[in-house]
Write a protein that binds this DNA or RNA. Sequence first.
DNA 1: TAGATTGTTAATCGATTAACAATC
DNA 2: TAGATTGTTAATCGATTAACAATC
Lengths: 211, 211
Amino acid sequence: MQRKEISKAVLKRLPGYLSYLKSIPEDAGPYISATGLANALGMGEVQVRKDLAMVSNGGRPKIGYLRESLIEDISQFLGYDNTTTAILVGAGKLGQALLGYTGFAAYGLNILAAFDIQPAAAEVEGKQIYPMEQLETFCRQNKVLMAIITVPVQNAQTVCDRLIRCGIKAVWNFAPTHLDVPKGILVQNENMATSLAVLSMHLQAQIKDKK
Amino acid sequence: MQRKEISKAVLKRLPGYLSYLKSIPEDAGPYISATGLANALGMGEVQVRKDLAMVSNGGRPKIGYLRESLIEDISQFLGYDNTTTAILVGAGKLGQALLGYTGFAAYGLNILAAFDIQPAAAEVEGKQIYPMEQLETFCRQNKVLMAIITVPVQNAQTVCDRLIRCGIKAVWNFAPTHLDVPKGILVQNENMATSLAVLSMHLQAQIKDKK
DNA sequence: TAGATTGTTAATCGATTAACAATC
DNA sequence: TAGATTGTTAATCGATTAACAATC
């Protein structure tokens, strides 16, 4: 079932399956059913089955999917097998938190280094923080395709433009602002405001119910 | 146009409008059209107009919407006017970054304090970090309804259960795992893995195109 | 008036869910 | 065999887009 056109909705659910599959204890038996997955993650079983059909080469009726293969299939599909190298721009609090986070390796993401106008430290968890001047050279030399933006809002667009001139093709944007980019460049917004809106709405409803 | 049933899709777009509206310079004139907004944010103008219709009480044909009112309407709709108090559990790197982030005030979010099994520091940016033992008392005393979870994956569910017993109704979950909660409790996952999947996919396609 | 813009109604598109046949 | 499960086809649902009338 390789390389069908996959929808973004499905794509976004795959990491959830993967992380759950990896968390299952070894002694739980080699098989897992779509039903089992669905229950564990609070989803519909048909949806799980359809999603899995996009990436796996099938399960066995009455038995389910071989867990190992499923993990391998999803990992491969998401490209977690081949490491992506990235750089981070803006080594403030959030930037340093991301820089020091060791969990990204599991997603095939390797943050090579960080850049800042005025590096407050030389390195975080062994990752160097360079002054902005060295950005271009570093990106070219290391053929970096992905950048993480953790600079203040007012600098985000300028930094983004500069990154694109360095050959960056994908931007993970933590600055709460819209970034204008040419076609072919992907901006993924890690938008905390969005999440907060959903939460805030829920709480408002809660409070109103109480009255 | 108050309090129609609003879809999650619309809700998630509102913060984007709001932040853009706030960023417009004062001297740009008091009106903004849906077309203008759409172009600035790279969206369809009909979509913007429909979204705005959900929260505002209308614009004027040929002129547009009064920017001030629009800001006020969206802010109020999202509940940014009345402050939500929250606590944070897990004062590691990410937890401290969030704790020290001053931008949340603009979203009506006030993180009162943080909790950790073993507080590494007494406070961050003036926000106290307490040992976990004091969680229950604090939540009850301050009538906290929202919690931010930034603990390691393996502790997330336990912490979540404990929070719910404290009266928490909304959870902002930064631990990359599914949380099981009773009905009526909202979990909003800040799922970095999801974003990474989208980015990773894009880069894979990029690399393949090159070949 | 003409034209830009709003706001609504209808059409399209995409994603989820339901129904069911196939399989072990 | 019976029953659990897969996988596919059809139906439903929801959200986006297009078309158009209303308005200033």
